[in-house]
Computed example of a mutant assay.
Amino acid sequence: MNRDPFVSKLMFPWKRFWGGTWKRRAQLGGRWYPFEVFIIGIIFIAVPYFGSNNIAHLYLEDAFSVFPENSFDRSVPVINWMIIPYAALYLFYPATLILAPKDDKGRLELVSAMQMLILATLFCVMFFLLFPAEVDMRDAIDWDSMNGIETILFEFIHTSDKPWNAWPSLHIVHSYCLARMMTHWLNNNYSETKWAKPFL
């Protein structure tokens, strides 16, 4: 079955976009390449997300103000320790860069993964701005019941991320995509190492 040309362009590395980065892939013994990919991620993933988050918080009205949350939302208790796996997403980004194989195949897989994240981010950001959704459950948190790590993580999330951009969940999309890529590399490149086995 022939693949749609438009879909193919989205799936395969974008030559014009990555051309300069690819030419520099061997600089500093290959260490420059993941750093440059990281910078591109900040520009095309972090900036659009946090930009839309703050735009919604400062200037937009909740498109779902009639039903921003429902009784089910309030019936689910806050489980303090769940902030740890939630915040672990922020470790997935550097971990992905570290685990990516240092050969050309691994580099192509890395840019393909980055493209997937960029497209998912821009798609979700479009929804965030056209249909802003605020779901603020922060008043349900029992701060006195937390330990130090939980408090630090909750405060970090609350400071960096306003309670907007509720739907669709970019957090879940990124977590899934990055976990799949890391699992792929662990299976194919690190499966025999002791430290990798608990993750497989």
Score class of each variant (00 low, 15 high):
residue 134 E to V: 06
residue 108 L to C: 04
residue 136 D to F: 11
residue 100 A to W: 02
residue 144 D to I: 03
residue 58 L to V: 07
residue 157 I to W: 02
residue 118 I to F: 10
residue 46 A to L: 14
residue 193 T to F: 06
residue 146 M to E: 01
residue 20 G to D: 12
residue 24 R to Q: 13
residue 62 D to I: 13
residue 193 T to G: 04
residue 169 S to F: 08
residue 161 D to I: 05
residue 95 A to E: 08
residue 142 D to P: 00
residue 11 M to D: 04
residue 145 S to H: 11
residue 134 E to M: 07
residue 199 F to I: 11
residue 190 Y to L: 03
residue 128 F to M: 01
residue 153 L to M: 10
residue 146 M to A: 09
residue 101 P to R: 02
residue 99 L to K: 04
residue 110 L to E: 01
residue 167 W to D: 05
residue 94 P to F: 12
residue 137 M to S: 11
residue 82 M to W: 03
residue 27 Q to N: 12
residue 61 E to G: 14
residue 13 P to L: 07
residue 167 W to A: 06
residue 48 P to Y: 01
residue 54 N to K: 02
residue 67 F to D: 13
residue 97 L to R: 06
residue 50 F to T: 14
residue 95 A to H: 05
residue 173 V to C: 09
residue 150 E to P: 06
residue 200 L to R: 15
residue 25 R to E: 14
residue 93 Y to S: 12
residue 26 A to I: 08
residue 171 H to V: 13
residue 65 S to V: 05
residue 47 V to L: 13
residue 151 T to M: 04
residue 44 F to C: 11
residue 11 M to L: 15
residue 15 K to E: 15
residue 120 A to Y: 00
residue 165 N to M: 08
residue 29 G to S: 06
residue 155 E to I: 12
residue 81 W to N: 05
residue 17 F to C: 00
residue 98 I to Y: 05
residue 7 V to D: 09
residue 91 L to Q: 09
residue 121 T to E: 08
residue 133 A to V: 05
residue 110 L to Q: 00
residue 90 Y to F: 15
residue 52 S to W: 00
residue 92 F to C: 06
residue 119 L to M: 15
residue 164 W to R: 02
residue 44 F to M: 14
residue 10 L to G: 12
residue 135 V to I: 12
residue 54 N to Y: 06
residue 83 I to P: 01
residue 30 G to W: 13
residue 148 G to D: 13
residue 6 F to Y: 13
residue 16 R to V: 11
residue 74 R to C: 03
residue 13 P to Y: 08
residue 56 A to F: 00
residue 5 P to G: 05
residue 132 P to I: 03
residue 108 L to I: 09
residue 101 P to Y: 01
residue 99 L to V: 10
residue 140 A to P: 00
residue 31 R to Q: 14
residue 43 I to Q: 10
residue 76 V to S: 09
residue 33 Y to F: 15
residue 60 L to Q: 14
residue 187 N to P: 02
residue 134 E to A: 03
residue 9 K to W: 14
residue 136 D to M: 11
residue 99 L to M: 15
residue 96 T to D: 01
residue 149 I to M: 14
residue 158 H to P: 06
residue 65 S to C: 10
residue 140 A to G: 12
residue 144 D to S: 07
residue 126 M to W: 00
residue 12 F to W: 15
residue 41 G to S: 09
residue 196 A to D: 07
